[in-house]
């Protein structure tokens, strides 16, 4: 088990390196030199050259790439061109907001999604089922910014809709983000549970004299939730890397907002940093999902 996970971790190293390379390359071919960005216009040629040199911008691509990796391994993702502060520190400052929002909206989506999925499956084709699947589909398919704007308008007199004032500021963004996750989880839970309930071993469990509730909780759920749990792990990791749209709409100073401002300002080190941060989190999320999968499904376990 431990060996299995260790193997997966090692496999991700080249993936990470390659990914950083791609990101690094893409952001380096984009026009927009830091010096011109920082100084805007009206600079003498020789000053530009001196600045370029001091920032090692004239070094060959791979030298810069490996220097970036080396620095990143030491926690240094460079300095933001625009804000003139270390990228690592900027991300670290923004992360708590993102973390709170990610945890709140994930928990919201589990608490809503799983029970709704179970009830819909048990009461298949009833009014409750149609209603909750409709609401779920709505959550999954409506654009996030649109839902956000509607909710902001509906609740603007009761709840804060912009910036972080208190815990109340998290309510609307949590619902906006959690709704679509909850919808996805509810639909997945329902379809998995219905699938599982058709299995022979469910009939065996019933033939033992177990009540319908115990058949569901004791025999069906564990099988039905295995794929749901892995989806949940991946979902939370992508939420942790910042929900750019939601954070922007609600003016939450999280990692997502940071990335958006980096794009607006052509702030390459900051953009690079947030993109790599996101990618690392998603890879980690996949690893956790994998580990969870083998922890709860005995058939996957490596002996």
């Amino acid at each position: 088990m431990v060996k299995h996970i260790a193997k997966r971790v090692i496999v991700t190293i080249p993936v990470l390196l390659g990914m950083v390379l791609v990101i690094f390359f893409m952001l380096n071919v984009v026009p927009g030199d830091p010096v011109t960005v920082m100084m805007r216009e009206h600079l003498k040629e020789d000053l530009i050259d001196r600045l370029r040199q001091s920032m090692h911008l004239d070094d060959p691509f791979f030298v810069r790439y490996f220097r970036y990796i080396w620095d990143a391994l030491h926690g240094d993702l460079g300095v933001s061109w625009k804000l003139n502060r270390p990228v690592t520190g900027l991300i670290a400052n923004a992360f708590p907001c993102t973390l709170k929002l990610a945890v709140a909206s994930s928990v919201f989506s589990w608490i809503m999604g799983i029970p709704v999925g179970i009830i819909s499956a048990v009461k298949k084709n009833s009014l409750v089922d149609h209603l909750s699947m409709g609401v779920s589909l709505f959550g999954v398919s409506m654009p996030i910014f649109w839902v956000a704007l509607i909710l902001q308008n509906m609740f603007k007199n009761v709840l804060p809709v912009s910036g972080i004032e208190s815990w109340k500021s998290y309510i609307l963004p949590t619902i906006v983000l959690g709704w679509s996750s909850a919808g996805r989880i509810a639909r997945l839970t329902r379809s998995n549970l219905l699938e599982v309930l058709r299995n022979d071993y469910i009939r065996t469990a019933r033939s033992k004299g177990l009540s319908p509730l115990r058949v569901i909780t004791g025999h069906a759920l564990k099988n039905a939730l295995i794929p749901v749990v892995t989806v949940m792990a991946i979902q939370i990791s992508s939420l942790l890397s910042g929900a750019a749209i939601t954070e922007s709409v609600f003016a939450i100073p999280g990692v997502g907002s940071l990335a958006v401002s980096a794009i607006k300002n052509r702030d390459m080190p900051l953009l690079q940093g947030t993109v790599i941060f996101t990618a690392v989190l998603i890879i980690a999320g996949n690893l956790v999902a994998d580990a969870l999968y083998s922890a709860i499904d005995p058939r996957i376990r490596v002996e």
Binding site: Y201, S207, K208, H219, R299
Partner: peptide
């Protein structure tokens, strides 16, 4: 339900699929 599995019990055809794959044989 009080009779099922207690005073009348059943064995099914497919031993491969009649046991729950994620619960130990003993527990079942």
């Amino acid at each position: 339900r009080r009779i099922r599995g207690n005073r009348i019990s059943m064995i099914f055809q497919e031993p491969m699929t009649s046991l729950n794959p994620v619960i130990t044989a003993g527990k079942q």
